[in-house]
């Protein structure tokens, strides 16, 4: 290659190499200004503890309540040993299977809340925000307590690896069943019936 052309190519490559570098700088600035999750901080209390497993005691937690209007200025302190069966589910508003499960959850709530089952939904904050989560609650008419887990602290404490995930908790606060992914009404209802009879 002639020296002049070689020099031109070298300069061109240098300028081209600046483009991805500039994109990276822009990306880092964007991440700093608007983090993809509400909070990127790692959990301090839960990460050092092993996640809850079936047969073990369900972990208590305190999170902000959220409804169709957004985050409420009120916290829910979840105490699994309150003497009632609990259906604890973990969702993300953008999760297709969680949306598909919403009518099933509503039906379960209608059927079992009167029989002493407590329903609590933990809505994750990964790649979403309280406004979008509130819209999800509004659109699907969730009428039971929903809490917002911005840092996924409770997700990690319960070893949730994907949404939706369901935990069925006994009256004495033990995790009886963990179900991952979309479930049928019958599966969840059957599990609740077993726990109610215990």
């Amino acid at each position: 290659m002639p020296k002049k052309k070689q020099k031109t190519t070298r300069s061109l490559n240098l300028y081209l190499a600046l483009i991805p570098a500039a994109m990276l700088v822009a990306f880092i600035i964007y991440l700093v200004v608007t983090p993809p999750a509400a909070n990127l901080g790692t959990t301090q209390n839960t990460s050092i503890q092993p996640p809850a497993r079936t047969g073990e005691s369900a972990k208590p937690f305190t999170l902000n309540l959220i409804d169709g209007n957004g985050l409420k200025n009120e916290k829910l302190s979840f105490n699994p040993t309150a003497g009632e069966v609990v259906l604890l589910d973990f969702v993300h508003e953008w999760c297709r299977f969680c949306r598909e499960m919403a009518p099933i959850m509503e039906k379960l709530h209608d059927e079992y809340s009167g029989k002493g089952v407590i329903f609590v939904t933990v809505a994750g904050g990964y790649n979403t925000n309280p406004a979008k989560t509130a819209e999800f609650i509004r659109n699907y008419g969730l009428s039971w307590p929903v809490v917002y887990d911005s840092n996924l602290d409770v997700f990690k404490a319960y070893g949730v690896q994907g949404t939706p995930t369901y935990f069925l908790i006994t009256k004495d606060g033990k995790i009886a069943t963990k179900l991952e992914g979309a479930q049928t009404y019958q599966t969840l209802a059957q599990q609740l019936e077993i726990l109610l009879q215990q």
Partner: peptide, 21 residues
């Protein structure tokens, strides 16, 4: 969704995909 909503989707407080960037 399962992979990107898992706890492994974050590493040292940043989304794993950010390291890919």
């Amino acid at each position: 969704e399962t992979v990107l909503s898992s706890p492994y989707a974050y590493f040292l407080g940043l989304p794993t995909a950010a390291y890919g960037v």
